[in-house]
Design a protein around this nucleic acid. Structure first.
Lengths: 191, 191
DNA sequence: ACCTGAACACCGTTCAAGT
DNA sequence: ACCTGAACACCGTTCAAGT
């Protein structure tokens, strides 16, 4: 809130890259992605807009970093559990995390997929589970893509439903997700 | 290209809503969604930016209209074919159309789903095929959502691959889509 | 290295005209 | 009804300073 702007060109504001990212996530959570602008972010941090560019190369990198942070919230699978059960838990966790950050999903889908470290970890974990389920590498690669598309893509449709009556007949989105996930797992791992 | 701008306040430019939409689709196809701005669109039409608002309420409505136009390109299913084969053809057509307009996919996924007339037609056609496959209504509703998420969501990942070597080992995206679609259809309709 | 001041090159949209 | 002129309230980003 306090903007002050009582700083002369030489003085520092004690800004950190982590502080910028944290503030951006806060704006995203409270006001949505429409309000996440470099200028509003700077104002919230009590700083001039261009000051952000000392800690972040630009808005795209900022969004990519937040996205990877969010991917870090996904629950890591156990190394010894049943692969099928672990795959179900992992993809459900991906879906839940994506649903908690719906504004980020379109940015994720706009071809800036799993480039960050947490994204790569997620990718490796999924591949490991599919390998433990004794899938050949090429089929595992296809299955990983199919599962990722499904879990993230479904979150984009899982927004708070339109302002109709309380229950409009259709089952809750999370149940539809679970149903479809079982179909996919049956196809991938066999009945 | 010609901007002229040699019109006085009273003169008309012969603009139509359809002409605006067509120009917008042309910009989208040649320059991408980043370049699709009201101002650039106006310039291409030889008109001042605010002139567009006589034919379109705003940019959001313009994108929604284009999106629904694009959905009209989806091949309509036959009324007498095998439901499973028709579902496969329909969802593949949805996927192909979405892939031809990758810039629109994030906008589609950003909760502006199937509100237009062509979107509703598509929705009805899918439900009819699922009913003909003798699915109960609630299961058909779940299946329709799952299929839509899968077909559209997959298109977001099917962009031209990064500039790696020609074949980087992974199978083409369209094959992965087909594989996953079979898994889903098996789960929905039974083996 | 980190910040300000000032500026550049843009946006979408509105509103009062003119014919 | 359809368009222009002018303006409003914004954007992301760069660049030359200052300490």
């Amino acid at each position: 809130m306090r903007v002050d702007s009582r700083r002369s060109p030489g003085q520092r504001a004690g800004l950190t890259r982590d502080a910028v990212l944290a503030a951006a996530r806060a704006v995203l959570a409270t006001d949505g992605i429409q309000c996440l602008t470099m200028r509003k972010l700077a104002e919230r941090l009590g700083v001039r807009p261009n000051a952000l560019y000392s800690h972040v190369t630009g808005k795209t990198e900022l969004l990519d970093a937040i996205l990877d942070d969010v991917l870090g919230e996904v629950a890591t699978p156990a190394h010894d559990g049943d692969p099928r059960a672990e795959l179900r838990r992992l993809m459900t966790s991906v879906h839940d995390v994506a649903r908690e950050h719906p504004d980020l999903v379109p940015h994720y889908l706009a071809k800036r997929g799993l480039r960050g470290p947490n994204g790569r970890k997620l990718r490796a974990a999924t591949e490991q589970l599919l390998a433990r389920a004794s899938l050949p590498p090429d089929k595992a690669s296809e299955a990983r893509r199919v599962l990722a598309v499904y879990a993230i893509g479904f979150a984009a449709f899982s927004e708070t439903p339109p302002s109709g009556p309380v229950g409009d007949g259709a089952p809750p989105m999370r149940d539809s997700f679970a149903t479809g996930l079982e179909w996919l797992l049956a196809g991938i791992l066999g009945e």
